[in-house]
Design a protein around this nucleic acid. Structure first.
Lengths: 116, 116
DNA sequence: CCGGATCCCTTGCGATACTG
DNA sequence: CAGTATCGCAAGGGATCCGG
């Protein structure tokens, strides 16, 4: 793209990044998505275990927000007692590349902050 | 990798994602990085303009945190009056792929929420 | 121009306890 | 098991003013 045509600079891109982060805000949201993403299907208590330090209140709240944003799908299983299964929607799966990159970066970053 | 060897499941990866987000937390941090990233070099007032809605207080605060984490470098220019230039460190540049993915996703997401 | 300091309201979110 | 309800502190963050 020709820079001379860029009247607004990169404002559009910067706003796009902000839009993305709006959906992924909250202390735990990305970790939750990762958990569901890595396991494909995941139950409430499983995620509670996957994500270190999260409380059931926060998990419930952020799951609900993710569902509203159509990133995950909630299914009540007819077991005894009931269990609830979460999985990514097709739309949610478009986040996979971001998750992968964040994982890779996070692994490297841990080396940097501990290894030095 | 063989799943049978995965005693801890994907906990390591999920923690890595969380680590990454720890550095990038805050309402504005990723937008700030994007601004600096897209322009290569960027001054305080420029970023203030790029990132819609941010206050100078928040910008100052989050820039400082990013500098502490070695993601950006601060340079005072000897102009009159002084100006301050920010740029990504080499380490900060390793975030570029993530920024690009977030931008792409955000642009698509905006279509989804407005276009439907 | 680049911030720091102050004031003050709002939100996040942890702890705990309780329900179907 | 999968949540909800309530409390309460701490942090987030906007507005405004000030100083180098």
């Amino acid at each position: 793209m020709d820079e001379n045509h860029c009247h607004l600079g990169h404002k559009k891109e910067i706003m796009a990044v902000h839009d993305a982060m709006d959906v992924l805000n909250g202390k735990w949201k990305i970790s939750i998505i990762s958990s569901i993403c890595y396991y494909n299907k995941r139950r409430f208590s499983d995620i509670l275990n996957d994500v270190d330090g999260i409380s059931n209140k926060m998990l419930s709240k952020e799951l609900k927000e993710l569902e509203i944003n159509k990133l995950i799908k909630r299914t009540v299983l007819d077991t005894q007692p009931i269990s609830v299964q979460y999985q990514l929607t097709e739309y949610g799966m478009t986040l996979q590349k971001i998750i992968d990159n964040l994982t890779a970066w996070g692994l490297e970053h841990r080396k940097v902050i501990t290894g030095k």
